[in-house]
Design a protein around this nucleic acid. Structure first.
Length: 1083
RNA sequence: GCUCGGAUGGUGGAACUGGUAGACACGCAGGACUUAAAAUCCUGUUCGCCCUAAAGCGAGUGCGGGUUCGAUUCCCGCUCCGAGUACCA
């Protein structure tokens, strides 16, 4: 019988499944090898021909490694939480679990059809409670940890608590929020439980904090930075806006430096490492403070008017006294004030609140300048002015402020209630007019007012001729002088109107506005004007820059446009009237204490000076932000947290997994809560509110490779993966997947891996030793050309591609599955759509040739090629080999089925080697000839080399060469063919299993056999046909023994008749002889 | 703008540390078998020149230069294409 691939493939796929041929054990004498594919999200569309590319490569590699004597872990699973199933649920009401299950079954069927050697007993699904139990468990571990910079690793939060108990906050070096409190051990012990929890939250590796987030209204959820592309959501392409919200975040920034360093130790594609480096965005520089006090008054600045600067609400006459008082008050704050402050700070009410702020001749306890509301707490420290309360209120009312009062007892007993009342009041009050007797923040009790900037070029500090703040910067309101109010407000409005996209696109227009205020240069003491401009980003560094127009092109453009001075700071700078010169060469000029120094010297001197002045320090800045972890969606892992008195607490570990509750609809509640808010009676211990957000898509995929290490038996144990299994498998040796996960999955996975290592649960610092990005398979669309008549309407006539220029036509996508080698199947086309049933054609050469274009593979373009169809026609072995034959694995390429016939022919030819002309199986036991051995050992070596360097396409060519040679030799020797079967087995597992048993081996024993041993003796030649070139141009071939030395070879060459023609009577200057390679005669 | 890739026949691609450029396959052309088609097999196929063929000659790996006996490969400069990223101070 001819090659019956359908029968063979189905039979062997069933055999592998029934016999669990590829089930792997965790204990083995063999060395381990872990081959991992990025597990798929099971979408409704099923697999197209591009998806299996990486899986085929990893399967070939796994099968090869098994033959090479390794214990290979090669698992597969599903990343089964995600948006599409939920969107479908919203539209149809069908539970996402049902959709997901159906999709997984479809995926499994398609994967099985390709004959992969996965160990399915270890399958994982991220949406399975037995799996997400451990995702939730890791979340809890993160919540219970902080990052100790001294040991440079994550540690239990208990360790931090012990430190607080013994030494207070002193000497703690941690990655934390910016606003951590300073306290002694006693103060810590005296704190209430709520206060302690609130403080610890600033250290935990997963934490709840008000953050600016990417909010996608269409999806109704927040998104992480890597899920937003150019201001639109990656999934669905909906607009994304910035919004402040209370959100769960992961302190990934704690690992920024370790993630950067780790990149040097792993074998990943360079572009991908580069993307991670950019994403982490480390820049080494300095923070510099430009102080705002004393600020030159209008008079001092030589400007008209004696009006007080707009940012001061205090009576200037007694400002100095008030300043001292307010500082003192902040230090000696009462317990009630502290408690209330914790509820008001960080805009928890939705508005910015300041404490102990001077107004007129008074100091208010708390004030919201935007709404003009003053909150006073009576009793305690400032009882001495209690009698004057009414008078005070009246005076403040006159200044345009409203006052509400609470008693100490009220605040202490029910701080949440009090803050609720404040919130209510704030919501009812109208906004005060911006800048109107508004005041400058004094840094919430942290000292003098200043503008802090981040710079990577401290050395240029003397060239600073102005400061620029982002329009959103919190000091802008306070800094604006009354005369500039309108201009600044206009500018802010104008920037706000510009969308994020416009702002990015329009980088050429220089715009900005002057606040009217000046800051003091920290070293020279010169006044420096403060501007705002949208080229400064609020989100990076401190949202403020020192502008050095001589060294930075953006600053130069700004200075030029607004007529600000440009001061050269280096004798090497040139053409400063044309553009900025950021050179680090030369010696400094106009630069005070660093005049005459070089770049390196100046940087050191200046940082030392700034530190001495308390005006700055060296600082490493990262672009990487903490990862927002909550999603306001249904189909994800519930966060194992409940709330008590407004503070988050972990549920008990025994209560894991916290199951996803049922809901009536998959939409937000009427009050805007996430879908989980709809769940009925879903309360911790029956009464406490659960967190209603779910985890993001990347949670489940950030540790899944460890779950595969747990065998089905292991999974009965109460652990994410047993320690001995982790000790054995360690890490992933080879990871294959797409580069689109560069800054998402691959970054988060490294983060969680490092965290788990810090806690001692895993053994390797990096999870994926070697990574390969398979190229994207693009679609290849075919077109037919419909002729358009004079009135511009489509006719029923279609013209072949080569003749279309003679007509007016419109191109129409046509299903690529009815086009072969660009020739349209006319009958199938007529059946393609009813409107084409009566189509007429203008042919060329009797054929209708279609047009071609490379586009993304998608249903709407009719260019999706389904692997099932190809397997039906050619078989899985052919498809596997053809996908490899297309080109280098890492290269992106359009799918083109045109060459598949060649691979199919190859497999039939291979089958023929084992059969006679009547297709009877017939092999001979005769001793093979030298030529036959040579053909075999060439392929043994070649495939080994190719697989080791992941060059699968070249192996396929070599197989063809080998089979062509053996066919020519009419070889049917068992000794040759049996080994050839083993060499081909990783690529074409079905046909080789079949032939392996026909050769008399036990069924299924092929993958347990071993790769044939290469014997170089069969390749030894004693002669070589040397290309002989004259002056580098090849002229002839000469067969010469390989044993000869150069003088002997030269003699033979020079004696040659044909060569003399080229010598033209001259004698050669030199003869180059490379043994086994070439002879070159130089005249 | 910056960073990283890439450019080889009609097409996909090969040539691994500099050593016969175009392996292998597709497509195309011609032929065999066949009533015919499909399938299969055989021959040719980088381009140009010489009427044709053989033989031969010349050019040739995006462009321009360089190093070398010899460059698709190494170096310098440029063009184009792709990917990532972006007022990151």
């Amino acid at each position: 019988m001819d090659y019956q691939f359908r029968d063979i493939e189905q039979r062997w796929q069933k055999f592998w499944a029934d016999n669990q041929t590829f089930k792997v054990e965790n204990n083995s004498e063999k060395p381990k090898y872990y081959v991992l594919d990025m597990f798929p999200y099971p979408s409704g569309a099923g697999l197209h021909v591009g998806h299996p590319l990486g899986y085929i490569a990893s399967d070939i590699f796994s099968r090869y490694k098994r033959l090479k004597g390794f214990n290979v872990l090669h698992p597969m699973g599903y990343d089964s939480f995600g948006l599409p199933a939920e969107q479908y649920a919203i539209q149809t009401g069908q539970h996402p679990a049902i959709t997901t299950e159906a999709n997984i079954n479809r995926y499994r069927e398609q994967l099985d059809n390709l004959g992969f050697s996965f160990d399915w007993s270890r399958e994982v699904r991220t949406s399975d409670p037995s799996y997400y139990k451990w995702t939730q468990w890791i979340f809890m571990m993160l919540f219970n940890s902080w990052y100790n910079l001294e040991s440079d690793k994550a540690e239990s939060i208990e360790v931090l608590v012990k430190k607080f108990e013994s030494n207070g906050s002193e000497g703690i070096k941690a990655v934390s929020d910016d606003d951590v409190a300073v306290f002694t051990a006693d103060e810590w012990k005296n704190k209430s439980d709520a206060e302690k929890q609130n403080e610890l939250l600033k250290y935990r590796l997963t934490y709840l904090r008000e953050s600016t987030v990417n909010w996608c209204p269409a999806l109704g959820t927040v998104l992480a930075n890597d899920e937003v592309k150019d201001g639109y959501s990656e999934r669905g392409g909906h607009p994304v806006e910035q919004k402040k919200m209370m959100q769960w975040s992961m302190r990934i920034t704690a690992y920024a430096d370790r993630m950067l360093q780790g990149l040097d130790s792993i074998d990943w594609p360079e572009p991908l490492k580069e993307m991670q480096r950019n994403w982490i965005g480390k820049s080494v520089g300095a923070l510099v403070k430009f102080s705002l006090t004393p600020t030159p008054s209008p008079k001092e600045r030589g400007e008209p008017g004696g009006e007080q600067p707009g940012y001061m609400t205090a009576d200037p006459a007694i400002w100095d006294i008030l300043k001292e008082h307010s500082r003192q008050h902040r230090k000696d704050s009462t317990q009630a004030e502290d408690i209330l402050w914790q509820h008001l700070r960080n805009s928890k009410t939705g508005y910015k609140i300041r404490r102990q702020h001077a107004i007129g001749t008074y100091i208010a306890d708390f004030i919201c300048l935007k709404k003009g509301l003053i909150i006073e707490v009576d009793g305690g420290y400032h009882t001495e002015i209690k009698d004057q309360d009414e008078l005070r209120s009246e005076a403040l009312n006159n200044l345009g402020f409203e006052v509400i009062r609470f008693s100490n007892e009220q605040v202490v007993s029910d701080p949440t209630g009090v803050s609720g009342k404040i919130k209510e009041k704030l919501n009812t009050l109208p906004d005060r007019i911006l800048g109107d007797s508004d005041s400058l923040s004094l840094g919430e009790g942290r000292g003098e007012a200043y503008i802090e900037v981040f710079t990577t070029r401290v050395d240029t500090i003397y060239g600073t001729t102005f400061l620029v703040l982002a329009p959103e910067h919190e000091l802008v309101e306070g800094l604006t002088t009354p005369d500039r109010k309108e201009e600044i407000q206009n500018y802010i409005d104008q920037t706000r109107k510009k969308s994020e996209l416009d702002r990015m696109a329009d980088t050429k227009t220089v715009s900005g506005a002057f606040t009217g205020s000046y800051a003091k240069h920290p070293i020279s003491g010169e006044p420096v004007p403060v501007w705002i401009a949208d080229y400064v980003l609020a989100g990076y560094g401190t949202g403020a820059v020192m502008a050095v127009p001589s060294g930075d092109q953006r600053d130069w453009l700004f200075a030029t446009k607004f007529g600000l001075p440009i001061v050269a700071i280096s004798d090497a700078q040139v053409n400063l009237d044309q553009e900025a010169d950021p050179t680090k060469e030369g010696k400094y000029i106009n630069s005070g204490i660093v005049n005459g120094l070089t770049y390196k010297e100046a940087t050191g001197v200046l940082i030392a000076k700034l530190e001495e002045l308390g005006a700055g320090k060296a600082k490493v800045n990262y672009r990487l932000r903490d990862a927002i972890f909550g999603r306001q969606r249904y189909w994800g892992e519930p966060v194992p947290v409940y709330f008590k008195d407004g503070l988050p607490y972990l549920i008990s570990i025994e209560d894991l997994p916290l199951l996803l509750p049922e809901v009536d609809k998959y939409l937000p509640t009427e009050s805007g809560e996430p879908p989980l808010g709809r769940a009925e009676n879903w309360k911790y211990k029956g009464e406490l509110e659960y967190e209603l957000s779910t985890m993001p898509g990347w949670a489940g995929s950030s540790w899944y490779w460890y779950r595969y290490m747990a065998s089905p038996e292991d999974r009965k144990q109460d652990v994410f993966a047993p320690a001995d299994a982790i000790a054995y498998w360690k890490d992933v040796d080879l990871y294959i997947g797409g580069s689109e996960h560069a800054t998402g999955h691959l970054l988060y996975s490294r983060f969680w891996n490092k965290f788990l290592k810090d806690l001692g649960y895993v053994v390797e610092e990096e999870p994926f030793k070697k990574l390969i990005n398979q190229g994207m398979i693009q679609g290849r669309s075919n077109f037919v050309y419909r002729i358009i008549d004079e009135s511009g309407r489509g006719t029923n006539k279609f013209v072949s591609h080569g003749l279309k220029s003679q007509y007016t036509t419109s191109a129409i996508h046509v299903d690529v599955n009815i086009v072969y080698n660009e020739i349209l199947d006319l009958e199938k086309f007529k059946a393609f759509r009813p409107e084409f049933a009566e189509a007429e054609f203008i042919l060329e050469g009797g054929k209708y040739i279609c047009g071609v274009e490379v586009e993304k593979m998608s249903k709407s373009k009719f260019n999706v090629v389904n692997p099932d169809d190809l397997i039906e026609r050619y078989g899985a072995d052919t498809l596997r080999m053809y996908e490899m034959f297309l080109g280098p694995l890492e290269q992106s390429k359009p799918w083109n089925t045109n060459g598949i016939e060649g691979v199919f022919k190859f497999l039939r030819k291979f089958w023929k080697l084992f059969h006679d002309d009547e297709f009877n199986f017939r092999v001979s036991d005769e001793e093979p000839s030298k030529a036959e051995y040579k053909a075999l050992h060439k392929i043994i070596r070649k495939v080994e080399e190719d697989i080791e360097r992941f060059s699968f396409n070249t192996s396929v060519s070599s197989f063809m060469i080998c089979v062509n040679e053996l066919t020519d030799l009419k070889c049917n020797k068992k000794q040759i063919l049996e080994q050839l079967v083993q060499v081909l087995a990783p690529y074409a597992p079905h046909i080789t299993e079949e032939l392996w048993t026909l050769l008399g081996n036990p069924a299924g024993s092929l993958s347990a056999s071993s790769y044939p041993k290469f014997n170089p003796e069969y390749l030894v030649e004693n002669e070589f046909s040397y290309p002989v070139s004259v002056n580098g141009k090849t002229r002839m071939n000469l067969s010469i023994s390989l044993t000869l030395t150069q003088p002997e070879v030269e003699e033979i060459v020079l004696a040659n008749e044909d060569l003399r023609k080229y010598l033209e009577g001259k004698s050669p200057k030199k003869i180059i002889f490379v043994k086994g390679k070439i002879i070159n005669v130089v005249i």
